[in-house]
């Protein structure tokens, strides 16, 4: 009995096999741990770790507003980076990109440096 396999189907079969193994490994570790370990919960043991102090206040901290600009910059640059990565394979195949791309890009870099210098905190 010889299995005549299509290359694409074989490809997907390999991935399926791998994914099943990848799912099994951590789950198996968890099951082994569940079998081997004993469970004796106590109020002190299951309290939140506070370096030996009694837990107080809320566990979920607030964070400072100073990091908010970084979130906005990330939204902009994340989109830019993904766009560049997606168009990257065909960028050098376009004559207009090769002819004029570096001019446009140098303007963009100048604008970026301007933004970075203007964002520089005082006293640095």
């Amino acid at each position: 009995m010889i299995l005549a396999l299509d290359a694409e189907i074989y490809n997907v079969l390999c991935l399926l096999f791998f994914v099943i193994l990848v799912v099994i490994v951590p789950v198996a570790m968890w099951i082994i741990a569940k079998v081997l370990s004993i469970s004796k919960p106590s109020p002190i043991k299951n309290a939140t770790y506070e370096c030996g102090q009694v837990f107080f206040g809320k566990s979920h901290l607030r964070f400072t507003i100073h990091y908010y600009p970084y979130a906005m910059i990330y939204a902009v640059f994340g989109a830019l980076a993904i766009f560049l990565l997606i168009v990257a394979p065909s960028l050098l195949k376009l004559r207009i990109a090769v002819e004029y791309g570096f001019i446009i890009f140098s303007l963009a870099i100048l604008a970026l440096f301007g933004a970075l210098i203007s964002l520089q905190p005082r006293g640095e």
């Binding site: 741990a33 569940k34 081997l36 370990s37 469970s39 299951n46 309290a47 939140t48 566990s59």
Partner: peptide, 11 residues
């Protein structure tokens, strides 16, 4: 580590 108790904190 696999023998250690699985502790789930109350919080």
């Amino acid at each position: 580590l696999l023998q250690k108790e699985i502790i789930v904190p109350y919080n």
